[in-house]
Design a protein around this nucleic acid. Structure first.
Lengths: 116, 116
DNA sequence: GTTATGTTCAACCACTGGGTTGACTAATTC
DNA sequence: GAATTAGTCAACCCAGTGGTTGAACATAAC
């Protein structure tokens, strides 16, 4: 079943993205980074968090392909990389669209079912 | 700063949704449910998981508003509720769109910066 | 070269969360 | 009514993770 294989593949691919964005701290970082690229320190400060902690979070975002780290002197500039996010949006879009069609059909089916 | 408040609110609201979909098992359930509504047992079986385990997962999806549980005789029918997913898609869409515009401007700025 | 700054690494702690099992409830079947 | 089936609840176990601190490293500043 081609369709199913494709779904699974898609899911595996997006796994790190979903997990990365599951943490509210990391989502806040993403929001911050959507304004402009920041150094690790700049990301840590408003969260009142240690450099090491922030660095770990950035590592997770980086592994998910959401953020790219660029050496800049002795500091690291974190830059958003929207590709992974687009993929995630597509995943969600795919299913929500699918459901919409299904749900209409389902409501219909349930009604007919309860009529018998 | 109205915009920021709005973002945060949006994030808090979507928190349960993001966390719910962070788990691959629950994403597989969502995929399954996108085909047709299933009982808890039907969800548990293909994952070779206990009823209790599956029930917990459904509980998480239900708390996030992704799934609705409907009593049907002695079994519970789980039905997809796409609203939360749409909201999540919108969240991602908002940021990825925002970034796209930003990234263009940034590339430009960085180039000009390195020219100086 | 020495000192200060930005970041990472390693070890560690506390907590969450996915999973199980076993007891319990509710509906179904005989 | 007794036995079976679907599901939930509570307690528990283990792995993963968010966070810390302290040491190490690289770059910048003096």
């Amino acid at each position: 079943m081609i369709l199913f294989n494709h779904m699974v593949e898609y899911q595996e691919q997006g796994d790190s993205t979903f997990r990365a964005l599951a943490d509210p701290t990391r989502r806040r970082m993403v929001e911050r980074l959507s304004q402009k690229p920041c150094t690790v320190g700049e990301l840590a400060e408003p969260l009142s968090m240690s450099f090491a902690g922030a660095s770990k979070h950035v590592g997770v975002l980086e592994a998910a392909g959401i953020v790219r780290r660029e050496k800049r002197g002795r500091e690291r500039l974190c830059i958003l990389q929207p590709k992974a996010l687009f993929e995630m949006r597509d995943w969600v879009e795919r299913y929500s669209r699918f459901w919409n069609a299904r749900l209409d059909a389902l409501d219909q089916a349930l009604k007919e079912d309860s009529d018998e």
